[in-house]
Write a protein that binds this DNA or RNA. Structure first.
Lengths: 107, 107
DNA sequence: TATTATAATCGTAATATTGCAATATTAAAT
DNA sequence: ATTTAATATTGCAATATTACGATTATAATA
């Protein structure tokens, strides 16, 4: 008990839920938006910008990374994070399709 | 500890996270899709269709209802659930805007 | 009124998420 | 080699989520 029964759902439904989960926390929404607004991607001040402790931000970044939405490279001691444009467009499409699929003809 | 610090985020970020959370579980994705595919909305067989226990489905329905995505009316002993079209379009717009806002110009 | 069918609610167990202090790691700078 | 700065990892506490059995509520039907 307590665990999502992923095996009873379709891969498509599981996939959509997984990516939705990334956006299901305001910190991650804010992080994604902030990173996207940077010229480059030296995101040193993310901790200060968001207002959560450094380990917490690090964890959230990791969650975003796990679904493939972030690309990170080290530039010296600084980490250069940026959004994976391909994956982002893929997500946009997944959501858009889902929203379009829902045609209700009742009530 | 353990609770999301909603007060440090903007209303927009909190709102987006809230609706994303609804789609952050495959059962709710499946439920939304199933309801949308019905002619009317006699969703009696939702439990059988999804494969989770009745109280669990009821809970998920309630989560969806809480963000205003479902309209429910009783038709005799059967509950008639259907998607709130207006709210649905609103959500689609919220997500679409967010995806569009992300313009990364790095990496 | 008693029965039946359907859905909500309650209570509870298992697990996941959120957040942070402490610590470790990494690499640049001194 | 030490220090410094940035990020990751660990460990843990608080809270949220997921799931379901048992029960309750509601209304149609016999």
């Amino acid at each position: 008990m307590g665990t999502t029964k992923a095996h009873i759902f379709s891969p498509r439904h599981n996939e959509l839920a997984k990516v939705a989960k990334v956006m299901a926390h305001p910190a991650r929404v804010a992080i994604l938006e902030y990173i996207s607004k940077q010229q480059g991607c030296i995101c040193t001040d993310l901790v200060e910008e968001i207002g959560l402790a450094q380990p917490t931000i690090s964890q959230h970044l990791n969650e975003i990374k796990k679904v493939g939405l972030l690309e990170g490279t080290f530039e010296g001691k600084n980490l250069c994070y940026c959004i994976n444009r391909e994956k982002w467009l893929e997500l946009q499409h997944v959501f858009n399709s889902f929203f379009s699929v829902i045609h209700q003809n009742c009530c």
